[in-house]
Amino acid sequence: MDETGKELVLALYDYQEKSPREVTMKKGDILTLLNSTNKDWWKVEVKITVNGKTYERQGAVPAAYVKKL
């Protein structure tokens, strides 16, 4: 869990989004888990830093590609 009490997951593999509802992640990324009720796809929040600014993006990733921490 992070400092706000939200559950975290670890990306076990790289994943490139294939639709606007998904998010890209790299192996080793730590993501915030938002919903894991679907056994195949979990909704997560990814933090992306671009030019020193951090953005948050929500989307789905394959459940088999992440592990709860």
Rank of each mutant, 00 (worst) to 15 (best):
V9W: 05
D29M: 12
L69D: 01
N51P: 03
D40S: 10
Q58F: 06
L10Q: 09
A60I: 15
N35K: 07
W41V: 02
K39W: 05
G28Q: 01
Q16D: 13
L34V: 11
I30P: 00
T32H: 09
T32I: 14
A63V: 05
K67E: 14
V61P: 03
L31V: 05
T24V: 03
G5E: 13
S36L: 04
D40F: 15
V61L: 02
T37R: 08
P62G: 03
D29V: 04
P20K: 09
K18L: 09
R57Q: 07
A63P: 07
M25C: 05
G52D: 07
W42E: 00
P20C: 10
L8G: 01
D14R: 02
T49M: 11
K47A: 09
K18R: 14
Q58N: 07
E22G: 12
G28E: 02
L12G: 01
T54V: 12
Q16T: 14
V66N: 00
Y15D: 02
E45Y: 06
K6L: 12
L33K: 01
N35G: 07
L12Q: 02
L31T: 01
Y15F: 06
N51V: 04
P20V: 09
D40R: 11
L10D: 01
K27A: 12
T32K: 11
T49D: 09
K26E: 04
A63W: 03
E3A: 13
Q58W: 07
G28V: 03
E7W: 12
R21W: 15
A11Y: 04
Y13K: 13
A60H: 15
V23M: 07
K18Y: 03
S19I: 04
E7T: 13
N38R: 07
T24S: 15
K39N: 11
E7A: 11
K6F: 12
D2W: 12
N38V: 05
A63E: 04
E3M: 14
V46F: 06
T54F: 09
K27M: 06
W42R: 00
S36N: 07
V44L: 01
P20S: 11
P20Q: 09
A11N: 01
G59N: 00
V50G: 05
R21P: 05
K43T: 15
K43F: 15
K6S: 10
A63Q: 03
V50D: 07
E3V: 14
S36G: 10
G5N: 12
E45R: 10
V66A: 00
V23Y: 02
G52A: 04
V9L: 09
L69F: 08
Y65L: 15
A60N: 15
L10G: 00
N35L: 06
D2T: 13
K47C: 14
